[in-house]
Structure formats: C-alpha cells, structure tokens
Design a protein around this nucleic acid. Sequence first.
DNA 1: TCCTGAATAT
DNA 2: GATATTCAGG
Length: 282
Amino acid sequence: MGEEVRMSDYDGGGGRDDNRVSEWEVGLPTGDDLTPLSHPLIPPELASAFSISPEPCRNAMDVNLASQNTLGQLQALSSSTNFNLKSLNQVRTMELEEDEADLMKEGSESRKLRRIDSGGAEEEEENGNDDLSAAKTAVKRPRLVWTAQLHKRFVDVVAHLGIKNAVPKTIMLLMNVEGLTRENVASHLQKYRLYLKRMQGLSSEGPSSSDHLFASTPVPQSLQETGGGGSLHGNGRHVQMPIPMPYPQMMHMPSPYQGFESHPYNVAQQRDWYQHVTPNDK
DNA sequence: TCCTGAATAT
DNA sequence: GATATTCAGG
C-alpha cells in the first residue's frame, strides 16, 4: 500500500527503484487510492457487531517482515530452478503470511474427493496450528477467480516471456501472486491458448461473448505469432526479468463485510481487485 | 518433474 | 453454459 510501503527505508537493495517496469504499473492503484496500513480494514463497530477481534495495527515494518518471509520462500524455490531470483530481491509483499494461512483454511471443505482409492484415507485434517503441513499437504484451495487485474498480470508475464516460453511454473513465479498455484496458472494458460487460437482463426470477427476477460486485455504484439517479443535473453530457460512489484493476495476474502469499507476509494478499488466467490457457490 | 489436453466439478 | 480444478498421458 503505497506511500507507507514504497519508501526508501523499505528497500533492501539500497533505495533504487530503477528496476521497476513502469508499464506494469499502469492501471494499478496508486498509493493515494489505497487504504493506508494504519487504517483498519474493519471498522470497530462492525468488528464488535460480528464479534471479530480487531486486526493488530500494522505498519511498514510488519509488511517488511512479511516481505522477507516471502523472499525466503521464493529463494528456497529458486534453488530448484534456473529461475533467476536475483531480480526478485526487490520484491515486496503487501500480504502477511498469517492471512495466507487463514485463506487456506477457508476453502478446505467443499470439493468432493474424486479419488476414493486412498481407501478412505484421512481427509487432511488441518488443525489450523500447523502451517507447514497445511502448506505441504494438498489443502483444498478456494476457487480462484481470475479478475481482470489478475488476468492482466498474467498476460503481461506471458507477453514478456513470449508465448513459447510461457509455461505454468515460470508464469506463476513471475506473477508472484500469493496463493496462486501452478495448476491455477496452467488451467488459465490452457484457456488463454485456446482463446488465442480462436482469435487467430476468426481474425476479422470480434471475440465471442464468452471472452469477456480475455477481450478486456489486448493480446500483446509479442503473442500474436512468434514468441520472441519478450525480454528473453539467450538460452531459452534462463529468464531474466525484473519483478516490479508483487501482487497482493486476490483470492476471495471470507469477510462478510467487505462492502462496508469506510474508504470510498477502497470500495471501488477492492471491488476491482478481487471478485467475491460465495463460499457456498452452488 | 513438468507440460498439456481432456474430463469433470461447481 | 461458463469457468476452474483435477486427471492422465507424453
């Protein structure tokens, strides 16, 4: 969240911002649009009305801490890939890890097990106290909704990679969205490819009515045919791309009062950033 | 192990 | 019917 976070004291690399890709930030909320960290997301009255214990007040330092956590995870990840995470050193997160844990709990029920061959094997009882195992075992994630913003991020990354090099894992890493899985990306990529193919087929006609999301984000030049357009250097898999900024978690939020945000800007903004999924969809 | 296409669930 | 998730083959 803008002003409080992107200050120089918050830059681990020494206060330089020159690795940012400004074009990526087009359309993203500015610091002025976002609620300052010090501003509680849940008004006290609502919190008490719903018997919610108020969120602890967070400041830039909390965010910084969480950011380092995230970095650590990313670096651990990097040891198993060629992916160059050096450039990720400027990654910041606006999300605190505990929220991620909450999120995982949130969607834990719902999907019926398709495979019974585990012989009635224990459906991972996640006692919420074990984050690590929760992260590791196949916890059912809440259904991801690809918002326009999320999709734009996706398209940007794919464009930079070039369609040829855009594979789920890389895309996932570059998108740097907490909670986003390779499967999520793979699935969306599949759809996106179908869309591109379709677009090539009927170049003259407009997108079909079901292509809302895709049509909302223009297909980058680099994707139109050859995949070379991106900032790919040399040997195919060694991706070197600065990550301008992380995306916050944009999965659906469980709170029933999200519409009641007292910041008028924020209401609009939040509506824009994620889409509500009813916990009990169908 | 990862990617992709297809099947299936919501 | 649209979209996301999961499966299965390469």
